[in-house]
């Protein structure tokens, strides 16, 4: 039988397979070029892991750093708040002896957070509660109403009493101590009298109580001095309020009228610096513009003392 030589080999070797000696796989594994390939792979994997590790570590570091910063900020803000709280409490106690209606108003605002417009009425509530504080504050209130002389210190109370109607004052005191009903009547009469002589009151108040230009409407506790020396105590001048405030703006001016500082955030106070750097000790003027919850516009002005 004749057959073309090509066909013979094609047929025989088309799907030709041959057995492989057993050790060949191991030989492949030990082959230098294969080892080299594995080494390269290892290096590549290691480098990938290294890059991943670097990314993870760096991101962790960044996150930790950020969190650390936030914590610090929290501590700072909380300390500042504490400062302000102490300042405000000090101030309220300072103001109390002055015996103005505004002081009562402030206390009532602090305690009950009622807008200042209704402050005279709210004075009634503390008296009904019959607390010692309210009785104290009640006395000067009556003084104001009766004498129409807002500058009354505790020491001056008896003087005023003596100058004005002693009997009514005494009865007022007695009423406060004895029966609540009488005291409420007294305060009501105060309110009535306050409504009319308010025009007389306002011109006399500013020189003495410079902090609150608009006595009945101030929702802020405003420190009159601060010490930006970095000791962590009263380093920032910042009005404090518990009431709802809208469109707040704090401006600081030098006595010469030069504008120094503006803040639109309740959290952000003045640290005693201008663009030119730290300012010297002395008097400065603050102007606070804001709207209360009813949308009424207020402007508080006054002086503050910078002490270094």
């Amino acid at each position: 039988m004749k057959k073309h030589i090509d066909d013979i080999f094609k047929d025989q070797f088309d799907q030709f397979e041959a057995p492989v000696s057993d050790g060949l796989w191991d030989k492949i594994q030990q082959n230098p070029s294969w080892q080299q390939h594995l080494r390269r792979q290892k290096i590549r994997n290691l480098s990938i892991y290294a890059v991943l590790a670097v990314i993870v570590i760096s991101s962790c570091a960044v996150l930790l750093h950020q969190r650390h910063n936030i914590d610090n900020q929290d501590i700072e803000t909380s300390s500042i708040e504490e400062e302000n709280l102490t300042v405000s409490s000090q101030e309220t106690t300072n103001v109390q002896p002055n015996g103005n209606n505004e002081a009562i108003a402030e206390i009532s605002v602090d305690e009950t957070s009622v807008p200042a417009d209704i402050a005279p009425e709210t004075v009634v509530d503390p008296t009904t509660q019959n607390t010692s504080n309210t009785t104290e504050t009640m006395i000067p209130a009556e003084d104001n109403s009766s004498v129409v002389n807002p500058v009354t210190t505790e020491s001056s109370v008896p003087q005023n009493n003596s100058v004005s109607e002693k009997s009514s004052e005494k009865t007022g005191n007695n009423n406060n101590n004895n029966s609540n009903k009488n005291s409420t009547q007294a305060t009501e009469s105060n309110n009535k009298s306050n409504d009319t002589p308010s025009s007389n009151e306002t011109p006399t108040t500013p020189p003495h109580t410079s902090e609150n230009a608009n006595p009945n409407s101030s929702l802020f506790s405003i420190p009159n001095a601060f010490t930006p020396n970095g000791d962590g105590l009263n380093d920032v001048f910042k009005p404090v309020t518990s009431a709802e405030i809208q469109q707040y703006q704090l401006d600081i001016f030098a006595m010469s009228g030069q504008h120094i500082f503006t803040s639109r955030s309740l959290e952000y106070g003045w640290n005693g610096e201008s663009q030119g750097g730290a300012l010297n000790s002395g008097n400065y003027i603050y102007v606070i513009k804001y709207k209360d919850s009813t949308g009424r516009e207020h402007i508080d002005k006054g002086q503050l003392l910078l002490i270094r």
Binding site: M1, K2, K3, I5, D6
Partner: peptide, 16 residues
């Protein structure tokens, strides 16, 4: 002539 007598009896190992 590339044809040759072939009887399919040559083992593959031999051809290889």
């Amino acid at each position: 002539d590339m044809n040759c007598n072939y009887y399919d009896d040559i083992p593959t190992e031999k051809l290889l």
